[in-house]
Design a protein around this nucleic acid. Structure first.
Length: 113
DNA sequence: CATCTGACGACCG
DNA sequence: GCGGTCGCCAGAT
């Protein structure tokens, strides 16, 4: 499988921001959903500048096992991501991609409803 | 070719 | 809040 799309997506995640496997799966329309997203991350080649640690499980929970889990948490904290106990503060760090491909984002929220 | 497992998520008790 | 189960896809044995 070409996880290139997934890697590109992950690479676009801004520093101090995080996304869940489910979000990645939905944004890229991956078949199988979160599972496929997780597989893609596992197969993520190291040394490619891919911030794999910014991809976490639902509700900002780290699902992977050690020692990657500790490493991930360390990296996230190092980037400014704050942890609320054993999970990431999703309310403050959940990254919402504007578009699946291309850059540029645009918000159109007139104001609150 | 068949079966199990795995960086998941949602649902149920 | 926690634990167990099912569905989903791909790779490994």
């Amino acid at each position: 499988m070409s996880w290139s799309g997934v890697y590109s997506f992950v690479k676009r995640i801004p520093r101090g921001r995080v996304v869940t496997y489910g979000q990645v799966a939905r944004a890229l329309k991956l078949p199988g959903g979160a599972r496929t997203a997780g597989r893609a991350m596992f197969a993520c080649p190291s040394g490619r500048g891919i911030p794999w640690h910014r991809v976490i499980g639902a509700q900002g929970r780290i699902l992977i096992r050690e020692p990657q889990a500790s490493l991930q948490r360390k990296l996230l904290e190092s980037e400014g991501t704050q942890f609320a106990g054993l999970r990431v503060d999703m309310a403050a760090h959940e990254w919402k991609p504007a578009r699946k491909k291309k850059k540029s984002g645009r918000k159109k929220r007139s104001h609150k409803r």
